[in-house]
Computed example of a mutant assay.
Amino acid sequence: MRIPAVVAVVGLVALGSPATAFAAPEAQCANPSGTYRGEVPWGQRLVDPARLWPLTRGDGQLVAVLGTGVDGQNTQFAPGQLEGGAGTERTDCDGRGTIAAGVVGAQPDPSTTFAGVAPGAHLLPIRYLEGSSSSSSSSSSDGGGDPGALAGAIDRAVDRHAGVILVAVPAAFDTPALTSAVSRARSSGAVVVSAASATQQGARTYPTATPGVLAVGSVNPAGGPVQTEAGDYLGVAAPGAELVSTSAGAGGTVAHRWPVTDPGLAAAYVAGVAALVRAYHPELTGDQVLTRLTLTAHRPASGRHDPRLGWGVLDAYAAVSSTLPADVAPPGAVPSAVPAPAVVPAAAPARPAADVAAGTIALAGVALAAAAGLTVAAVRRARRRNWRPSRFTP
């Protein structure tokens, strides 16, 4: 029996500007900016999950969202998409968990251009961090949560068969319990994804800096790094600034928060793509999923590891569709002078038959028109010569 993968998400920080206001259930809790109706958000265009949906939407994957809870009243989550059970929380006063969950699995909806990466996945909201509504208006998340509580949340995610554990708000320091929880998660086959979110120079967050964890940096629309945290443990980068996602306080509507700037959003994008990879390649181990995500990333301009962007910006289509050698090693496991293996993404999905037929007819028409033009030119030339053959000059 195949065990569904689980993505565990640990809360985010949102920065939003009010628009089309919705009433929050409590004055102290997070408020939506409105229902987002602008152009497709730039981060969503960069990751382009819709291009992958003909291959996989993440169906069969259980995505555990660890953090501040997930607002079950936001109707961009499908009925039944939020799982229940011991330790789950379907309310979210703080709002950061709902933002993370939306990046991973919000449904496409005609009222908005925003959608999550893996809308076929189910979500398991586990609260480990209470947070506060004041944090939902900040652009920094390096305060983190208690490492002991985070360790317990990771253990609960593993107990629910987590396949991917996303830590969007990591802890500011490590503990034996947290290291042990990460080790247990990896032994279970999970991919542990953690945001590099420290804002103080030289600071590290955990389990981001723990060996074997996929540490995620974040980029803005210009491609520049968002976070201060840096190190040789950074794996990949993804969109983490000026983004859109689902909001808590929706009150039974499709509601969003924007613009959102937080390194945790980058980790949420990577975790969503990891869920797509697990759905499309159920035979892969957790470490093989991590390797695939790093090897297929768009390399930095230098071609080498960047301390704030890792091995480059996430390439979702290549990560899911590429053919890789069975024994390929992650880029950090070999000297940088060794060339990376060839990464061959699958061809883009074929156009519908009607489009192909129309294209064939159009090409045939062009060819006939060209032939007709040549014939007319030849006849006119022959008439000018009174139908006498021209002399051949070598």
Rank of each mutant, 00 (worst) to 15 (best):
D94T: 06
L129T: 02
G212C: 04
R96A: 14
G231Y: 08
L52I: 07
N31G: 14
F77R: 01
V192E: 08
V191I: 06
Q28K: 15
M1W: 12
P207R: 12
W42Y: 07
G223W: 05
T246L: 13
D174M: 12
G72V: 01
G120M: 00
C93W: 05
G272C: 00
G11D: 13
A370Q: 07
P325F: 08
W387G: 06
P32I: 10
L55T: 14
L309W: 03
R257L: 09
V270K: 04
L66P: 09
L55A: 12
S390F: 06
P335E: 07
F173A: 13
A333Y: 04
T112C: 06
H281E: 07
V167S: 05
P54L: 00
D146C: 03
G72C: 01
L166D: 14
E283Q: 15
A348K: 10
G43E: 00
D155H: 05
L178Y: 12
G359T: 13
P147G: 04
L123E: 03
R384K: 14
T98W: 09
G310Q: 05
I361C: 12
V216A: 01
T393R: 15
A14H: 07
A266Q: 01
V226T: 04
A106S: 06
L178V: 02
G148Y: 10
F77Y: 11
A172G: 15
V254D: 03
V244T: 08
G97S: 05
V169K: 13
R384P: 08
S141D: 13
A30T: 14
L368Q: 12
L214F: 04
N386W: 09
S141Y: 04
A157P: 09
Y128G: 02
F22W: 09
S188L: 06
P110L: 10
A151H: 07
D232H: 13
S17G: 14
T291R: 13
G60N: 07
V13Q: 12
T56Y: 03
T56W: 05
A78G: 10
P49C: 00
S136M: 11
A267M: 02
P335V: 03
A255W: 00
G34H: 08
I99F: 11
A14C: 11
P110G: 09
V254A: 05
L82R: 00
P345A: 11
G202W: 00
V182Q: 15
G120K: 00
W311T: 06
G252Q: 05
V366F: 11
V356A: 12
R278F: 02
P352E: 01
P119W: 01
R96K: 14
A353M: 04
A118F: 01
G312H: 08
E89N: 12
R160W: 09
V167E: 08
W53R: 02
V9W: 02
A348C: 05
N386M: 10
A19S: 15
V313Y: 00
H256P: 04
Q81R: 03
S183M: 08
A21L: 14
Y206V: 07
R186I: 06
V104F: 01
E89D: 14
G67E: 05
L363N: 11
T253D: 15
V104N: 00
E26S: 13
L368I: 12
V70E: 02
G310K: 05
A24N: 12
W42Q: 02
G145R: 02
A347L: 10
Y280V: 08
I126H: 05
H305F: 03
R186Q: 14
